[in-house]
């Protein structure tokens, strides 16, 4: 066997849309872009509307609350360790969208119980962002979305 450890390191340019979004999180703001033609709101934001193929027209601030669209409980960590307590995460549909499957939203941790994931009662629940005291401009500035 020939063993090889690759070195693959990057400095990803967040670009226009994601830079504003991440800097917004530092200010406890969830910012999205809006296309005035089709009215679609993008969170996470894009500088172009993928449906209309034109630049988005401006920024909107969304409430830091929404409803749980889907959720899972994982007993395996990112580094593949067995977890005693599961990590619960899912997609949060932020308020401000009339469409069922296309919506401004976030994938994040959900502060709830395993039972509520198992019996699916968490789905549709109203949740609100729990912000970290110290924020750096990262998706981790939000600790989780917690049931209200």
């Amino acid at each position: 066997m020939i063993r090889y450890v690759p070195k693959a390191k990057y400095s990803y340019s967040a670009g226009q849309a994601q830079s504003v979004f991440l800097n917004g999180l530092k200010e406890k703001k969830i910012l999205g872009t809006v296309c005035n033609k089709c009215k679609k709101v993008y969170v996470p934001p894009k500088m172009y509307c993928e449906e209309c193929f034109k630049p988005t027209d401006g920024w909107v601030e969304l409430k830091d609350e929404g409803i749980v669209h889907t959720a899972i409980a994982s007993f395996v960590s990112w580094t593949r360790d067995r977890l005693e307590e599961p990590i619960i995460s899912g997609t949060i549909k932020l308020y401000g969208s009339e469409r069922d499957y296309v919506f401004p939203g976030m994938f994040h941790r959900i502060c709830t119980t395993y039972d509520k994931v198992r019996d699916m009662s968490i789905i549709g629940a109203k949740v609100k962002a729990v912000w970290n005291e110290k924020r750096v401009g990262s998706i981790e500035d939000i600790q989780c979305f917690k049931e209200v």
Binding site: S13, A14, G15, Q16, A17, K46, Y48
Partner: peptide, 18 residues
């Protein structure tokens, strides 16, 4: 090109091509 993500950069090129 610090001002754009790779996707934004492609969008710019695509807009010009179309």
């Amino acid at each position: 090109t610090p001002e754009v993500s790779f996707r934004e950069m492609v969008f710019e090129a695509a807009s010009r091509a179309y």
